Amino acid sequence: MNRREACIAMLPTLVSPRILLAQVVGRMARIGFLVEPALDAPLQRAVVESLREGLRELGYIEGRNISIDFRSADGKYERLPALATELMLLKPDLLVTAYPTAALVAKDATRTLPVVAVCVDNPVLMGLAATFARPGGNFTGVGSWAHEIVSKRLQVMRELVPNARRLGILFNPLAVVGGLDSPIVEWERTLGIPIQQYKSTSPDDFEGAFAAMARDGVGGLVVLADSNTYTHRVRLNQLCLQRRMPSVWGGRDWLMGGALASYQSDFPHMFRRSATLIDKILKGTKPGDIPFEQSNKLELVIDTRAARALGITVPKTLLLSADHVIE
């Protein structure tokens, strides 16, 4: 082997894997991104910019060696299947989904394209993975806590309104796989208080749900995060004030002056972390061989504006344990 041949042979050990990827593929890597809620300013910061930040840290620059095609259903669940099909026609190298509904639509849309599902509750229960450690199919991702985090929100609600005789949960059945019947039995046993379910798939259900809560004597409400509650969070915050209903939510961007608190996984951290999984797939690892990760960063936010408006004194223990207090 002459000197030139020896130098060429050494290139794979000297050149960055990202540069090698660009040389082998011969084009920019293409990512499709599917989400149900509108990508407004808060979600742009928490989701889009966090994802881009994570990718930049790994050497991926949009327009240089990667492109991202974003598709949002603007809060309309029925638009998701057509948007998934639209993304598939662009022939991306992989698909990223945000939140459970988009992941479930992607599951129906493809069995072969690699998918990184971010902020899903339980990928095994949702049918996205055989196990967390060995997903086995075309999905991997970063999971949020499902029933465990709802249990914690109920505990926070109990601390905020210790005299409540009944608690309620407002949720979208389209976004909760398997329903809540079974876990509610355990939560009731743990907290020693009845818990009532209230379903809402659109804002048309809000007035009826709050009227039912009043009839049922609900003294505190946990609102589960989904596109419906996010898109119409201002209206729901107003209803909480009008009905004088203390509430705990699933994300700090849902707190608009009428919601008392939020306890949720750190969304920006999860989307930054998802860039690592994208990187592995683009370098050739099969998604089924990449373990689903579990969010390990949780955030408690207390909104004292709502507490004052509702005449509630937030226990000092909660204020001291909060990651952020909105004054």
Results as ranks from 00 to 15, higher is better:
Arg305Pro: 02
Leu170Phe: 11
Ser72Asn: 12
Leu170Met: 03
Ser67Gln: 13
Leu241Thr: 00
Pro194Asn: 11
Asn172Lys: 05
Ala322Lys: 01
Leu191Arg: 14
Leu180Arg: 02
Ala106Phe: 01
Val115Glu: 06
Ala164Gln: 08
Gln196Ser: 14
Ala309Met: 09
Ala129Gln: 06
Leu191Thr: 12
Thr140Trp: 08
Pro92Tyr: 03
Ser182Thr: 05
Phe132Ala: 14
Leu167Asp: 02
Leu90His: 08
Pro42Phe: 00
Ala82Ser: 12
Thr285Trp: 15
Pro246Gly: 07
Ile31Gly: 02
Ser321Lys: 03
Val115Pro: 07
Asp289Asn: 12
Val218Asp: 05
Gly63Trp: 00
Gly136Phe: 04
Pro268Thr: 04
Leu55Met: 03
Ile31Asp: 12
Met10Arg: 05
Arg30Ser: 08
Val48His: 00
Leu95Ala: 02
Leu83Pro: 01
Met28Glu: 01
Phe139Glu: 02
Ala275Ser: 12
Ala109Lys: 12
Asn2Lys: 08
Arg165Asp: 01
Ile169Arg: 01
Pro162Ser: 11
Lys76Cys: 13
Ile195Glu: 10
Asp204Leu: 07
Thr13Asn: 12
Phe271Val: 00
Glu5Gln: 15
Thr131Tyr: 07
Asp181Pro: 07
Val156Trp: 05
Thr313Arg: 08
Glu49Lys: 08
Tyr230Ser: 11
Phe267Gly: 11
Glu299Asn: 13
Lys280Thr: 14
